[in-house]
Amino acid sequence: MGNIKLELKEKIIEQLNLEDMTVDEIADKDPLFGEGLGLDSIDALELIVMLDKDYGIKLADPKEGKKIFESIETMAAYITEHGKK
């Protein structure tokens, strides 16, 4: 799961153009939205597409997203359990 966390941090930095950020600056438990990384609703859509494209996970229920995208840790756990790629 450690590898997935690092991979996720790299993907988030690249796909969301967080130019000034490094993987070391994102803690596993940091909130991705709000006070943490400060991501917004457009980023949420980017993350949903990323889960589908890179891990074969289709989120049918948008409410699910709120829990999954809480932090890198919750995302990695969900991918480990449900990932198909």
Partner: peptide, 13 residues
Amino acid sequence: DNKEEYLTPTSFI
């Protein structure tokens, strides 16, 4: 590249 799938909104917006 993605064969009309996996389109994200940022660059479109």
